[in-house]
Design a protein around this nucleic acid. Sequence first.
DNA 1: GATGCTAAAGAAATCGTTTTCTCAGTCAGT
DNA 2: ACTGACTGAGAAAACGATTTCTTTAGCATC
Lengths: 369, 369
Amino acid sequence: MPDKKVKSSNHDGKPPERMDIRTIARAANVSIATVSRVMNNVPTVNPRMAKRVWEVIDQLDYFPNTQARALVSGRSRIFGLIVSEITNPFFPELIQGFEDIAVEHGYEILVSSTNYDPKRMSHCIRRMLERKVEGVAVMTFGIEEPLLDQLARRKVPLVFIDVGPKRPSVSVLKVDYHHGIRQGVQHLAAMGHRDIAFITGPMALHSAQSRRAAFVGSLKECGIVPESSWIVEGDHTMEGGIASMENLLATKKRPTAVMCSNDMTAIGVLHKLYRAGLRVPDDFSVIGFDDIHIAEVTIPPLTTVQMSRFELARSAVMALRAHAENPNDPAPQREYEIRTDLIVRESTGFPRGTMTNAKKAKAKSATNA
Amino acid sequence: MPDKKVKSSNHDGKPPERMDIRTIARAANVSIATVSRVMNNVPTVNPRMAKRVWEVIDQLDYFPNTQARALVSGRSRIFGLIVSEITNPFFPELIQGFEDIAVEHGYEILVSSTNYDPKRMSHCIRRMLERKVEGVAVMTFGIEEPLLDQLARRKVPLVFIDVGPKRPSVSVLKVDYHHGIRQGVQHLAAMGHRDIAFITGPMALHSAQSRRAAFVGSLKECGIVPESSWIVEGDHTMEGGIASMENLLATKKRPTAVMCSNDMTAIGVLHKLYRAGLRVPDDFSVIGFDDIHIAEVTIPPLTTVQMSRFELARSAVMALRAHAENPNDPAPQREYEIRTDLIVRESTGFPRGTMTNAKKAKAKSATNA
DNA sequence: GATGCTAAAGAAATCGTTTTCTCAGTCAGT
DNA sequence: ACTGACTGAGAAAACGATTTCTTTAGCATC
């Protein structure tokens, strides 16, 4: 924003040409109030006049100053979006969707990545407060609730994933982890796996707990008793996946398959298995979670549980809009359901040496149906 | 931003409690001008008074309204960041760095991903203009200059990668593609490869042309004549990599190695080779470009040319700051140099059947030195 | 033809800051 | 003691919109 000092009239005849609502009003021969009304589609304005104003606006290529508008109307038209790790490919895909939908409804977004660091979190909340966001989507999968008090206290609408305080102006996006994870477990069990490991996310995260619970539950449904040494804690990174897989390979009795709390972990696992000289899926089966884009081209392509980023983004924006646009709506915390589904690719197969090729083909076609 | 209507005094004794500079002024028994001066560290204010004001500010947990501030000061303290594809992992890493550094200097950022779509680009420029950004970093690697006229005309500081109009308030980040790419070519040549292919980015992008030129140049330096059918156009996506590799495999005489214009392409290539039953690096060598994080764990880990996201981000923010904070500085377009370097991992090796193990070991150690 | 009502547009207040202007004091120099 | 320069702090004018309050004009009603 330069041209601040162009106020003093310059002697070469040109008017100072600052582009504000007054310029338009003057050019269209109406009051600024009318221009404002035209821009906001207030119905009481004479259509002929409106047309004239629009023409001037188009011709001069004018657009209103968002901050002035926000200041007086009390509406910033900005949503905040807090993610835990922008470098995990899951999130950019989410951000993309969130941005698209928010922009579509006339909102701008302020993204911030906390990297699981409470200090960063608190700093970014502060920034959002300063910018007067009209709502914040907290896509960190459940962490640091105390910090969010600052937002709640100032009555900023919020939307969480999985779990959040039951308060007015707070919505929760419920992810049905169970559905997809059960499909995964059954898929493995159907092929004959009994020794199935699980690599969780950081257990401080609610979602990590939910996913583990869904895994354990699904295992039991198949009549398999969970072996605790086969449930190891990861951290949703590739490095974590590598380390966790290392631990699993070192267990007394090795599992034959592993489910991961997210795809990045699975990618680490794939890598560790490659290093260990084990072939996937011949020697070991791997299932991921998220279905990020690169899951299609890992070697081998990753069987994974899909959670729709688009659905997540859409629901989040909708929830925030609902709150922002009806400030005193008595109906608070709506809950939105997000489905999960297994996508079978090539990182899963029969446990080593249990089946002939003929049986393989048969079982596989049954599974896919 | 709710609590808009809390103006009317409520009958339970409490004051309406709106938190603005006036509240602070009243509580500290000074004028609002003084409060403002204190917050902005204006040196002429009495230290004792300043202390008192700070105490009140802390105690009431007050922070100024950014939009009011921006409105009057004419400074939004927002930078725009336009990337071509947020779902390409290169960019999140860049965004992260950009955000960190911008925030460190008190700026907020507005990110937008154009997905190579001019319509999106133009829309996002408009949005940035509306929010009165103080500068825009155009990290699309050279495209759609006409659209950027809108920004230039309004004298918004800009920073480009590689190439940009020589105008005041416009800086360019020069990437030294040649250095890293030459290293890559020499690395391959040193191991005995002569038949080296190249998959470019979208040729509409300046960076794609620069990278190809660097490749062709480096090839000639090694006395290899470029074979045009081995230079194919990709689009910087995994899918593009797969398709391009397919084309390369179909050439009359197959190359023995390929360099890619970015890592996503290389990942696609790796996948295609896997599908084709070719082993990397035994049957085919692959080099990427960017050194995104997952390049470390591809199978096999990817040899690639590193371009520092952090350097890029830092330089971009610094360039924008320089312009934003000295609006009438006569010195425009500073240029910043970004280095590139080869990172040798495991996707490159000797061409099939050309060397004995002894020779291998020797050549490899020489290359790494 | 005076009155009341409605529709449409202008005037003015407002949002929460920064910044310029103004005005008391203080102090030094003569 | 009077002037001039300087300090420090308050008063008031922006900033560029929205929104409330007024005004004007037109029309129907009695």
